[in-house]
């Protein structure tokens, strides 16, 4: 039987050393059992590798950075939609989610579907709100403090012991072993991502991640826990293995049940030496390692598209444990004309 063909736009084509999830999401969509796809890449930079991966991405359009404003983004999406007649958009960056959430109703009216967390869910799980989030939903989180001013750094010693984590509001985290290091990371991270900075209690232990999908009604549609086996200098997983920790799955189900999370997500968890589990971060989108979930039997991007299209999705109930992913880098040979095309015309 011939499958229907969906036109799906995907961001996060930056398959670099700190990779965006786009390419993994696209691989998952191309393996979807219930539909075929035409993939439209949405890029921010001309050297995002996905732009040139023509076997995965059918056509790419550049889009403006979120700082350009929602109206500029909408105008660009209207142009792309006119050309491509999009069915679904899957945004894959934390920083772009706010404008896409704001545009969800307008895009829906144009016939473009998304399946994103609500603005309330998106804001509530922000790093700056993690303490309150933990209290409200009775989820174990590390103690943290938001600082807006470098002078606040000196009072930290009475509240936190060293080492402590210095985090940016969107990205970046460093372990500081002295006040001098806290100050240095404060300056470095705030220069890149702005204020505030979050100081977090350091939990000694092993880091795990869970990716999954919530239906927005409290149900767990998918959940796959993973342990990073090979971590890059930027803290990204270059290799990992699926595991079967019931406690992590329980925490995930509780997170989805209590918040009624809508959309894909990645939980960053830490287990200390006493076996206590902490939720360090909630990333409101699918992770770059999402293809492992497909490899163990849960095609989460496919399920997300179906939910976006308003279709019923049966929750996944099992996955293969002990399956690994090993990432690799690959040099593509690209004609300069292609680079010119995307750089000057914003389309390829």
């Amino acid at each position: 039987m011939k499958k229907r063909k969906l036109k799906i736009a995907v961001t996060g084509l930056n398959a670099i050393d700190s990779p965006g999830p786009g390419i993994s999401v696209i691989r998952a969509l191309r393996e979807a059992a219930s539909f075929d796809v035409r993939i439209i890449g949405l890029s921010y930079e001309s050297l995002e590798p996905g732009i040139y991966m023509h076997d995965l991405v059918d056509r790419t359009y550049s889009i403006p950075y979120p700082t350009a404003g929602i109206d500029t983004l909408l105008a660009r999406l209207e142009y792309i939609h006119e050309k491509e007649k999009l069915d679904v958009i899957i945004p894959n960056f934390d920083a772009e989610l706010y404008p896409f959430i704001k545009l969800e109703t307008k895009l829906k009216a144009m016939g473009i579907h998304m399946f994103l967390p609500t603005l309330h869910q998106f804001e509530e799980r922000q790093k700056v709100n993690l303490n309150e989030f933990g209290k409200k939903y009775n989820i174990n989180v590390p103690r943290s403090k938001v600082i807006h001013d470098l002078s606040m750094v000196y009072s930290l010693q009475s509240e936190f012991s060293f080492p402590m984590i210095v985090k940016g509001k969107f990205y970046d985290a460093s372990i500081a072993y002295s006040i001098e290091q806290v100050k240095s990371y404060y300056n470095k991270i705030s220069a890149k991502w702005g204020l505030p900075i979050i100081i977090q209690e350091f939990i000694h232990g092993t880091e795990f991640n869970v990716t999954g999908l919530g239906d927005g009604k409290g149900n767990t549609i998918a959940a796959v826990p993973m342990r990073k086996q090979y971590i890059t200098e930027k803290g990204k997983a270059w290799g990992g293995i699926s595991i079967s920790d019931e406690e992590m799955l329980d925490m995930t189900r509780k997170f989805l049940r209590t918040t009624k999370w809508r959309g894909g997500f990645e939980l960053e968890l830490m287990k200390n030496k006493d076996g206590e589990l902490y939720m360090l971060e909630i990333n409101p989108r699918l992770p770059a390692w999402i293809y492992l979930a497909v490899g163990v039997g849960q095609n989460i991007p496919e399920a997300l598209v179906k939910l976006a299209m308003g279709e019923k999705v049966k929750p996944f109930t099992k996955y293969t444990v002990g399956k690994m992913f090993v990432r690799y880098s690959w040099d593509m040979i690209v004609d300069r004309e292609e680079f010119e095309q995307i750089s000057i015309y914003g389309e390829l």
Partner: peptide
Amino acid sequence: LFNPVTGE
């Protein structure tokens, strides 16, 4: 040996 709970 593979411990499926910890992934080690």
